[in-house]
Design a protein around this nucleic acid. Structure first.
Length: 596
RNA sequence: UGCCCGAUGGUGUAAUGGUAGCACAGCAGAUUCUGAAUCUGUUUGUCUAGGUUCGAUCCCUAGUCGGGCAGCCA
């Protein structure tokens, strides 16, 4: 992409989960460390998922293990293949060449096989690695591929007298569950015979009952303080086609039943999830332990999810922004979705560094968006090609340069590079500068161009402002200056110091491009703190202008990252840009420490 | 008013019985053909009360505050 050196890799992270994994590795508890990233395909991945992805894949790569991508698709009424596609794309982009070698997939269409472990039947599913098995048709794991096996496990639980079919209505099920501070009541169907339970469960599967008529429940204890242990539902009836299994099933396992078993079947060792699942852990363990499984069991570990300031990550609110057309879609560059972040021009490496850098703890906290922005700037600073572009142009005429003369000046592509390269930029009598870089009545400590003042045109020479031309309304339309050609690089006055250096582009050579100036979507640190988060939408989160760009930018490619000098970092828009009709997105501004 | 989890500068985190450190943000200065980057310096912290100990951010007890849990969602 560029010859610039990427930012140095951060030291290996350490946190309480990695400590646990390290201990397990030391005691050789598992043959290999296997984690998983299990999104439900019912929405787009966002920056919060990025933290989870980096944690799970990070642990896998640090331990020579693997991390399975698994669609947690046990609820057909909410899920869709559209999301499966976007999730795969986002994960692939994020882990890039950082952890792609750990990415676990399965053979296309593969479902678990029955094997014998210690003389006991066992379900397993072999993993494949798209990074090194390119000729094989592979796909992510799907919890729905295990429906047959999960059903078998349910039958096993029934046979052990540890699960029963319950006829309570949804409302009654709620009532019988009690409350956190009040014990529940046993279901009247709790003590059905194993035979009756088996018969009823088979008939549930066969589609004999309508939605909501019956459920399969674990038989635990209705008086336990943890409500998730009060005979939790294992299966519900849903006469709905599934995006992956079609109309094969009309009963679907609940998250709690499917998740631990999916983990087990895939041979997951460390099942890492967010804090709200902490109270589910006893159930996760109960199911696995009561099935008498022959292999080592996976265990669940919880961490606090990422809460970034100035962003909204709630799926419901994200959908609202999309549906109300407050943004252009799920990949709007202002959204904290991974697709939006990617389209904005943020390198995967920068997102990763942020997601890893925030750390892993067990307490909720809000991460200042400035930390994210710093990670983005820092990465971009080291890789972005410097270019000259003017976003709000005003014409400057250099009266002592003849019309028609073109002076080629050398401009550095990236001063951060160990071996900086240069390019030629045309410099002529008429140039555009940024309107902001001229002040007829300058505030104190204003370093830029002012009447009678001098400023350096970067890579070219120092100019002096002689005259300000205004229109009838008093607006400045042109600035007339004298160029000190001896102050060019290598010239006798090249060492002359002026306080300000500004960017410019030759009017005759400039190319026009649409430039989308993106800013934070929300002005408030906690957009939804005061009720209606849409009230906090930043009206200037997108300002579209026509910019004047240096001619070399006509050949910009999608992969390149640019710094428009003194303005910020820019990237071609992946959707709307076309040759001859360029569209640039501002990823982020440069840090601005000049007190306004 | 049940159970579970947690609490370190403005923010995010490290220190697992022995000098409270790092990053971001802030401030001051140096430097600069980007008011960027870089460099230097710097302000601000262990929730409270007891206990154990030569010594406690760390272990124990109580309190305070915060979060989570009562979907046939995940």
């Amino acid at each position: 992409m560029t010859d610039a050196t990427p930012a140095a890799p951060s030291p290996a992270p350490s946190d309480f989960i990695r400590d646990i994994v390290a201990q397990h590795v030391a005691e050789k508890r598992y043959p290999q460390i296997v984690t998983r990233f299990p999104p439900e395909p019912n929405g787009y991945l966002h920056i919060g998922h990025a933290k989870s992805i980096c944690l799970n894949f990070g642990i896998a790569r640090e331990n020579g293990g693997q991390c399975n991508l698994r669609m947690d698709d046990t609820n057909p009424t909410k899920e869709d293949v559209e999301y499966v596609e976007s999730i795969m794309q986002d994960v692939n982009w994020l882990i890039g060449d950082w952890a792609d070698h750990c990415l676990g997939f399965k053979a296309h269409g593969q479902t678990p096989v029955t094997v014998s472990v210690n003389g006991q039947p066992d379900f397993q599913i072999p993993a494949h690695f798209p990074a090194r098995e390119k000729s094989v048709a592979l796909e992510p794991f799907f919890a729905s591929d295990y429906f047959d096996q999960i059903f078998e496990y349910a039958v096993a639980l029934i046979k052990k007298g540890k699960a029963y079919v319950c006829d309570l209505s949804p409302e009654d099920t709620d009532k019988y569950r009690g409350a956190p501070d009040k014990p529940g009541t046993d279901s009247p169907y709790r003590n059905r015979s194993i035979e009756e339970n088996l018969d009823l469960f088979m008939r549930m599967k066969a589609g004999e009952f309508p939605n909501g008529a019956r459920t399969l429940r674990a038989k635990i204890d209705m008086s336990l303080p943890n409500v998730w242990l009060r005979d939790p539902l294992l299966y519900r009836i849903r006469h709905t086609a599934h995006h992956h299994t079609g109309d094969k099933w009309c009963i679907y396992p609940m998250y709690d039943f499917a998740h631990c078993l999916s983990d087990y079947i895939e041979g997951i060792t460390h099942s890492i999830c967010t804090l709200e699942f902490e109270v589910h852990r006893p159930l996760y363990d109960w199911i696995l332990e009561n099935l008498g499984l022959p292999r080592p069991l996976p265990h669940q570990y919880e961490f606090a999810k990422l809460i970034p300031s100035h962003m909204i990550v709630s799926k419901r609110k994200l959908i609202h922004l999309v549906n109300e057309k407050l943004v252009s879609g799920w990949d709007d560059p202002r959204l904290p979705t991974i697709s939006g972040i990617r389209r904005r021009g943020v390198p995967a490496c920068a997102l990763r560094r942020f997601a890893i850098g925030v750390g892993v703890t067990k307490f909720d906290s809000m991460t200042d968006i400035a930390v994210y922005e710093h990670a983005v700037r820092d990465e971009l600073n080291s890789i972005a090609l410097r270019r000259l572009a003017v976003v709000d142009p005003i014409k400057v005429v250099l009266t002592n340069i003849p019309a028609g003369e073109t002076i080629e000046v050398d401009a550095v592509d990236n001063p951060q590079s160990e071996t900086p390269t240069t390019r030629k930029v045309p410099f002529t009598r008429e140039v555009f500068i940024e309107r902001e870089d001229f002040a007829e009545v300058p505030p104190p400590k204003y370093f830029r161009l002012k009447p009678g003042g001098e400023v350096r045109l970067k890579y070219a020479c120092i100019i002096k402002c002689d005259e300000v031309v205004k229109d009838a309304a008093g607006n400045v339309v042109e600035i007339r200056c004298t160029a000190d050609l001896d102050s060019r690089a290598g010239g006798p006055n090249s060492g002359k110091k002026v306080k300000g250096t500004i960017h410019w582009v030759s009017a005759a050579h400039a190319i026009d491009a649409e430039v989308r100036l993106y800013d934070r979507l929300f002005t408030a640190a906690e957009p939804d703190a005061g009720g209606d988060f849409t009230k906090n939408v930043n009206p200037k989160s997108l300002v579209t202008v026509t910019g004047k760009l240096e001619p070399s930018l006509a050949f910009a490619t999608q992969e390149q990252r640019f710094q428009f000098e003194r303005l910020g970092y820019f990237t071609l828009d992946s959707k709307d840009s076309a040759p001859g009709k360029l569209v640039f997105n501002r990823t982020i501004t440069l840090k601005d420490t000049w007190a306004k």
